[in-house]
Protein backbone atom coordinates (compact mmCIF):
# COMPACT_ATOMS: atom_id res chain seq x y z
CA UNK A 1 0.00 0.00 0.00
CA UNK A 2 1.21 3.52 0.63
CA UNK A 3 2.58 5.65 -2.19
CA UNK A 4 4.69 3.77 -4.70
CA UNK A 5 6.19 4.91 -7.99
CA UNK A 6 4.74 2.96 -10.90
CA UNK A 7 5.77 3.60 -14.50
CA UNK A 8 6.93 7.01 -13.42
CA UNK A 9 3.55 7.83 -11.86
CA UNK A 10 2.91 7.69 -8.16
CA UNK A 11 0.06 5.48 -6.99
CA UNK A 12 -1.32 7.03 -3.86
CA UNK A 13 -4.87 7.84 -2.67
CA UNK A 14 -5.55 11.52 -3.21
CA UNK A 15 -2.36 12.00 -5.20
CA UNK A 16 -2.62 14.97 -7.55
CA UNK A 17 -0.47 16.09 -10.42
CA UNK A 18 2.36 18.35 -9.12
CA UNK A 19 1.93 20.65 -12.13
CA UNK A 20 -1.74 21.13 -11.24
CA UNK A 21 -1.01 21.68 -7.53
CA UNK A 22 1.75 24.15 -8.37
CA UNK A 23 -0.71 26.09 -10.52
CA UNK A 24 -3.07 26.40 -7.54
CA UNK A 25 -0.50 27.37 -4.93
CA UNK A 26 2.63 29.41 -4.24
CA UNK A 27 4.79 26.30 -4.73
CA UNK A 28 6.82 25.47 -7.81
CA UNK A 29 6.53 22.00 -9.34
CA UNK A 30 9.85 21.02 -7.73
CA UNK A 31 8.62 22.21 -4.37
CA UNK A 32 5.40 20.19 -4.70
CA UNK A 33 7.49 17.12 -5.54
CA UNK A 34 9.73 17.77 -2.53
CA UNK A 35 6.61 18.08 -0.37
CA UNK A 36 5.55 14.67 -1.64
CA UNK A 37 8.71 13.20 -0.09
CA UNK A 38 7.76 14.80 3.23
CA UNK A 39 4.15 13.63 2.82
CA UNK A 40 5.25 10.02 2.15
CA UNK A 41 7.38 10.03 5.25
CA UNK A 42 4.60 11.30 7.52
CA UNK A 43 1.80 9.24 5.92
CA UNK A 44 3.69 5.97 6.38
CA UNK A 45 4.77 6.54 9.96
CA UNK A 46 1.92 4.55 11.56
CA UNK A 47 -0.21 3.10 8.74
CA UNK A 48 1.37 3.00 5.30
CA UNK A 49 -1.76 3.93 3.37
CA UNK A 50 -0.68 7.13 1.64
CA UNK A 51 -2.87 9.28 3.89
CA UNK A 52 -2.06 11.21 7.05
CA UNK A 53 -4.30 10.42 10.00
CA UNK A 54 -4.40 12.50 13.17
CA UNK A 55 -2.08 10.18 15.03
CA UNK A 56 0.55 10.49 12.30
CA UNK A 57 0.12 14.26 12.20
CA UNK A 58 0.64 14.57 15.96
CA UNK A 59 3.57 12.16 15.81
CA UNK A 60 5.22 14.29 13.12
CA UNK A 61 4.64 17.49 15.10
CA UNK A 62 5.70 16.31 18.52
CA UNK A 63 7.47 13.00 17.87
CA UNK A 64 5.04 11.63 20.44
CA UNK A 65 1.90 9.89 19.23
CA UNK A 66 0.15 9.90 22.60
CA UNK A 67 0.06 13.63 23.09
CA UNK A 68 -3.45 15.11 22.98
CA UNK A 69 -3.34 18.69 21.83
CA UNK A 70 -6.26 20.97 21.06
CA UNK A 71 -4.18 23.17 18.77
CA UNK A 72 -2.64 20.39 16.70
CA UNK A 73 -6.07 18.83 16.45
CA UNK A 74 -7.54 22.12 15.21
CA UNK A 75 -4.82 22.49 12.57
CA UNK A 76 -5.41 18.89 11.46
CA UNK A 77 -9.14 19.55 11.09
CA UNK A 78 -8.46 22.59 8.89
CA UNK A 79 -6.03 20.60 6.73
CA UNK A 80 -8.69 17.87 6.41
CA UNK A 81 -10.92 19.97 4.18
CA UNK A 82 -13.02 17.02 3.02
CA UNK A 83 -13.71 15.99 6.65
CA UNK A 84 -12.65 12.41 6.02
CA UNK A 85 -10.51 12.11 9.13
CA UNK A 86 -7.38 11.94 6.98
CA UNK A 87 -5.26 14.37 4.97
CA UNK A 88 -4.46 13.42 1.40
CA UNK A 89 -1.61 14.87 -0.62
CA UNK A 90 -3.70 17.57 -2.27
CA UNK A 91 -5.06 18.71 1.11
CA UNK A 92 -1.53 18.75 2.49
CA UNK A 93 -0.09 20.95 -0.26
CA UNK A 94 -3.02 23.38 -0.37
CA UNK A 95 -2.97 23.82 3.41
CA UNK A 96 0.80 24.25 3.65
CA UNK A 97 0.59 26.81 0.86
CA UNK A 98 -1.08 29.17 3.38
CA UNK A 99 2.08 28.96 5.52
CA UNK A 100 4.45 29.82 2.66
CA UNK A 101 6.35 33.10 3.21
CA UNK A 102 5.10 34.40 -0.15
CA UNK A 103 1.39 33.73 0.41
CA UNK A 104 -0.77 36.82 0.76
CA UNK A 105 -1.53 38.32 4.15
CA UNK A 106 -5.22 38.13 3.37
CA UNK A 107 -5.07 34.33 3.00
CA UNK A 108 -3.08 34.02 6.22
CA UNK A 109 -5.49 36.26 8.14
CA UNK A 110 -8.52 34.32 6.90
CA UNK A 111 -6.94 30.98 7.83
CA UNK A 112 -5.93 32.25 11.28
CA UNK A 113 -9.52 33.38 11.86
CA UNK A 114 -10.79 29.87 11.11
CA UNK A 115 -8.12 28.45 13.41
CA UNK A 116 -9.54 30.32 16.40
CA UNK A 117 -13.20 29.86 15.40
CA UNK A 118 -13.25 26.42 17.02
CA UNK A 119 -16.94 25.68 16.49
CA UNK A 120 -17.07 27.12 12.96
CA UNK A 121 -19.81 29.66 13.66
CA UNK A 122 -18.11 32.46 11.73
CA UNK A 123 -17.21 34.24 14.97
CA UNK A 124 -14.44 33.92 17.53
CA UNK A 125 -16.32 33.81 20.78
CA UNK A 126 -15.07 34.54 24.26
CA UNK A 127 -15.63 31.01 25.51
CA UNK A 128 -13.58 29.64 22.60
CA UNK A 129 -10.68 31.92 23.45
CA UNK A 130 -10.96 30.93 27.11
CA UNK A 131 -11.00 27.26 26.12
CA UNK A 132 -7.76 27.76 24.18
CA UNK A 133 -6.12 29.69 27.00
CA UNK A 134 -6.99 26.93 29.46
CA UNK A 135 -5.69 24.28 27.04
CA UNK A 136 -2.44 26.19 26.67
CA UNK A 137 -2.08 26.52 30.43
CA UNK A 138 -2.68 22.80 30.81
CA UNK A 139 -0.11 22.07 28.12
CA UNK A 140 2.54 24.22 29.78
CA UNK A 141 1.60 23.38 33.36
CA UNK A 142 1.61 27.10 33.99
CA UNK A 143 -0.95 28.34 36.47
CA UNK A 144 -3.00 31.53 36.21
CA UNK A 145 -5.84 32.53 38.51
CA UNK A 146 -9.26 32.63 36.91
CA UNK A 147 -9.47 36.39 37.58
CA UNK A 148 -6.24 36.86 35.65
CA UNK A 149 -7.61 34.86 32.72
CA UNK A 150 -10.82 36.88 32.76
CA UNK A 151 -8.79 40.11 32.86
CA UNK A 152 -6.79 38.98 29.81
CA UNK A 153 -10.06 38.15 28.02
CA UNK A 154 -11.57 41.52 28.98
CA UNK A 155 -8.55 43.36 27.60
CA UNK A 156 -8.49 41.26 24.42
CA UNK A 157 -12.17 41.67 23.65
CA UNK A 158 -12.07 45.36 24.46
CA UNK A 159 -9.44 45.74 21.72
CA UNK A 160 -10.64 43.17 19.20
CA UNK A 161 -14.42 43.20 19.50
CA UNK A 162 -14.90 46.73 18.23
CA UNK A 163 -18.70 46.63 18.12
CA UNK A 164 -18.72 45.05 21.60
CA UNK A 165 -21.24 42.33 20.79
CA UNK A 166 -19.21 39.73 22.67
CA UNK A 167 -17.71 38.00 19.63
CA UNK A 168 -15.11 38.77 17.00
CA UNK A 169 -16.17 38.65 13.35
CA UNK A 170 -13.84 38.40 10.37
CA UNK A 171 -13.64 42.14 9.69
CA UNK A 172 -12.91 42.86 13.34
CA UNK A 173 -10.23 40.16 13.22
CA UNK A 174 -8.67 41.65 10.09
CA UNK A 175 -8.46 45.04 11.79
CA UNK A 176 -7.14 43.57 15.05
CA UNK A 177 -4.43 41.59 13.28
CA UNK A 178 -3.39 44.65 11.28
CA UNK A 179 -2.70 46.36 14.62
CA UNK A 180 -1.07 43.23 16.08
CA UNK A 181 0.91 41.71 13.19
CA UNK A 182 2.87 39.44 15.53
CA UNK A 183 -0.29 37.30 15.68
CA UNK A 184 0.48 36.15 12.15
CA UNK A 185 3.91 34.81 13.03
CA UNK A 186 2.50 31.30 13.40
CA UNK A 187 1.10 31.55 9.87
CA UNK A 188 4.51 31.55 8.16
CA UNK A 189 6.92 28.61 8.01
CA UNK A 190 10.37 29.67 6.79
CA UNK A 191 11.10 25.94 6.12
CA UNK A 192 8.84 26.12 3.09
CA UNK A 193 11.21 28.49 1.34
CA UNK A 194 13.92 25.82 1.29
CA UNK A 195 11.77 22.76 0.89
CA UNK A 196 13.66 21.40 -2.14
CA UNK A 197 16.94 21.61 -0.23
CA UNK A 198 15.43 19.85 2.77
CA UNK A 199 14.07 16.99 0.64
CA UNK A 200 16.46 16.62 -2.30
CA UNK A 201 15.40 13.03 -3.08
CA UNK A 202 12.41 14.39 -5.02
CA UNK A 203 14.84 14.85 -7.93
CA UNK A 204 15.07 11.07 -8.38
CA UNK A 205 11.33 10.72 -8.76
CA UNK A 206 10.58 13.87 -10.68
CA UNK A 207 7.89 13.49 -13.33
CA UNK A 208 8.73 16.71 -15.09
CA UNK A 209 11.83 17.84 -16.91
CA UNK A 210 11.78 21.31 -15.54
CA UNK A 211 10.51 22.87 -12.40
Amino acid sequence: MGCVPSKGRRQCPGYEDPVFLASQTTFSVSEVEALFELFKSISSSVIDDGLINKEEFVLALFKNRKKENLFASRIFDLFDVKHKGVIDFGDFVRALHIFHPNTSLEDKINFSFRLYDLDNTGFIERQEVKQMLLALLGESEMKLADETIEAILDKTFLEADTNQDGKIDLSEWQYFVSKNPSLLRIMTLPYLRDITTAFPSFVFYSEVDEA
Binding site: L38, S41, I42, A60, L61, F62, K63, N69, L70, F71, A72, S73, R74, I75, L96, F99, L115, Y116, V129, M132, L133, A135, L136, E139, T148, A151, I152, L153, K155, T156, E159, A160, N180, S182, L183, R185, I186, L189, Y191, A198, F199
Partner: peptide, 25 residues
Protein backbone atom coordinates in the same frame (compact mmCIF):
# COMPACT_ATOMS: atom_id res chain seq x y z
CA UNK B 1 0.46 41.47 31.68
CA UNK B 2 0.49 43.37 28.44
CA UNK B 3 -0.13 40.44 26.10
CA UNK B 4 -3.54 39.81 24.58
CA UNK B 5 -5.07 36.34 24.69
CA UNK B 6 -4.10 35.54 21.09
CA UNK B 7 -0.46 36.42 21.73
CA UNK B 8 -0.50 33.88 24.53
CA UNK B 9 -2.38 31.21 22.57
CA UNK B 10 -0.04 31.52 19.61
CA UNK B 11 2.79 30.36 21.88
CA UNK B 12 1.26 26.88 21.86
CA UNK B 13 3.54 24.23 20.40
CA UNK B 14 0.51 22.76 18.65
CA UNK B 15 0.31 25.81 16.40
CA UNK B 16 3.99 25.55 15.52
CA UNK B 17 4.19 23.35 12.43
CA UNK B 18 8.01 23.35 12.33
CA UNK B 19 7.96 19.85 13.78
CA UNK B 20 6.61 18.50 10.49
CA UNK B 21 9.93 19.36 8.86
CA UNK B 22 12.24 17.93 11.48
CA UNK B 23 13.70 14.45 11.80
CA UNK B 24 11.90 13.20 8.73
CA UNK B 25 14.79 11.58 6.93
Amino acid sequence: LNLNAFDIISLSSGFDLSGLFEETD
